[in-house]
Nucleic acid binder design. Sequence first.
RNA 1: GCUCCGAUAGUGUAGUCCGGCCAAUCAUAUUGCCCUCUCACGGCAAUGACCAGGGUUCGAAUCCCUGUCGGAGCACCA
Length: 471
Amino acid sequence: MRCAPNPNGPWHVGHARMPAVIGTYKQRYDGWFCVRFDDTDPETKRPDLEAYDAILEDLDYLGFEPDATFKASDRLDIYYDHARKLIDMGGAYTCSCSGEEFSELKNSGEACPHRDKDAETVLSEFEDMIGGVYDSGEMVLRIKTDIEHKNPALRDWVAFRMIDTPHPREEAEEYRCWPMLDFQSAIDDHIIGITHIIRGIDLQDSAKRQGFLYDYFGWEYPEVVHWGHVQIDAYDVKMSTSTLSELIEDGELDGWDDPRAPTLKSLRRRGIRGEAIVDAMIGLGTSTSDVDLAMSTIYANNRELIDEETDRRFLVRDGNEVPLGGSPPDEANPQLHPNHEDRGVRKIPVGDAVLLESDDLPQREERVWLKGLGCFQYTRDTLQYTGEDIEVVREGDVDVVHWAPARESVPVRMRTMEGDVTGRAEPGVAELATDEMVQFVRVGFARIDHVPSGVADDSSDDELVVYYAHP
RNA sequence: GCUCCGAUAGUGUAGUCCGGCCAAUCAUAUUGCCCUCUCACGGCAAUGACCAGGGUUCGAAUCCCUGUCGGAGCACCA
């Protein structure tokens, strides 16, 4: 099998579907798959030189390693050779009609005057195409199919055209005569030995078009499956590489890994495992209708993967400072993980005031349980320690909330899909390493992205940054 | 306009080929309860679907026809 991306940028979430499915089939049936960059249009689908590696990185993130990697732009001579053979067989002709002219003839089922040229003329004109004698638009090589085919999309399609713009890859910058996807991909699929093709419904007619080519060469066409488009809920921005590229260019997004971008790099930075994405993609199956993938499915998969191993911490968003009274303990010791007592407890210095989220501020005279610390009653603008037992919580009279010490907490910037949130976390969070996952109690899972090297200081720009993953 | 393709709960999916075991599977979502130092995890329960209409048949999600809705192609893009 093959994954044949157009290297025009890093992958968005939808792109994960192809490697997820063929990678999984490979594992299941002891198969083989390659990545083949179909970079045969240096102009309108101009390849981005950085995208080749970016895509391979994304693939690695998803947990797959291709058995081989090809670049179509390395293989022009192969395509030229096959075109020559085809011309010998009378299966192709050079045509200098303009696009509109040919389109009109085609739609009425009429052959153009170039169709009956003898093979020698065609071959010599094709060599001139390769030699760059013609300018863009002057000459194409068409596959002779059936000019009266009932589906106009299949009639005498273009196999090679001239492009004046040099290819961005140095190795390919001299070529001017480029194959169209249908030709290049057809030849490569056979030569590489692809037995099964999966591709989008937009290429539904490709198999039929390429069928004419396979008939000329006496080849057998691979099994082919077409699937519909994937939409992801939960994103405002359109999931298209070119749209994302523009948004980044305009500064609307910080980069391909901005938490608001529907890209694999973004999910990766948020600490979502490739496996969670792959599993969600597998669940979509391969139906030809368009599907909506719910991000919640990816989140649920990820939660299952990380929940057991992720320790709990406190983060208070937009905290309200409340003084403490009544001599509470100096230190709080909530568990690192409720299901794993053996991991021990955190040590959170309490101080003389704490931060609470607005929703958690108790009403006057109401009691509240600061998780890991104890019971307090809100009296005269302070939280008075009552010393009551956990029984008050079990009886259901007292709510338990998370909190952070007002003084010895660390400022945190949490980047989310809805924008940045600031808050303060228990001091232990500053000791964590980049890439570690945390679960902020009653907030959600997040990945530690950047930990300041020096001592935490509110005035410094070097802040602790985490990326929010999901609830 | 011409040519293809598709339609099962909010979402995804199984079942459709070879009609009955489907008053329709599983997951996710939502809600409620249980557990718990309130999150998460786990347990239990509830919610919720065969696009419509005809036909064939003892029997249709499944086969046939029509309609509706949706998607794709008709490029010198991929």
